[in-house]
């Protein structure tokens, strides 16, 4: 049931407004707010379900490819 390792979770902190929606609705408790911005607390627990990307109103978190320089 492990999700494809092809994708990675990225955050774009300067777009984050700290609304906390992704943290609250992440089913695996992977995320946290740090200094009012989104932070990946525990990447190992992420199953890449994509819910954070789906519910982020500010497009500050997303699943992307593994190419270099995508951070």
């Amino acid at each position: 049931m492990t999700a494809s390792k092809e994708k990675k979770l990225y955050v774009k902190k300067d777009w984050c407004k700290g609304c906390n929606i992704c943290v609250a609705f992440c089913p695996m408790n992977t995320l946290e707010l740090k200094d009012g911005k989104i932070n990946i607390k525990d990447i190992e627990s992420c199953t890449q379900c994509g819910r954070c990307e789906l519910l982020c109103p500010d497009y500050a978190i997303y699943l992307g490819g593994t190419e270099d320089g995508k951070k």
Binding site: K12, D14, G18, E53, D58, Y59, Y62, K70
Partner: peptide, 27 residues
């Protein structure tokens, strides 16, 4: 950088949008 969807369908220079924190409109 941002997701390919946002890159391909939004005017990146205009983002982040002006909606308030937690506003559902972005979703």
């Amino acid at each position: 950088m941002t997701s390919t969807l946002v890159e391909n369908h939004f005017r990146i220079g205009k983002l982040p949008h002006i909606w308030c924190p937690g506003c559902g409109h972005g979703i």
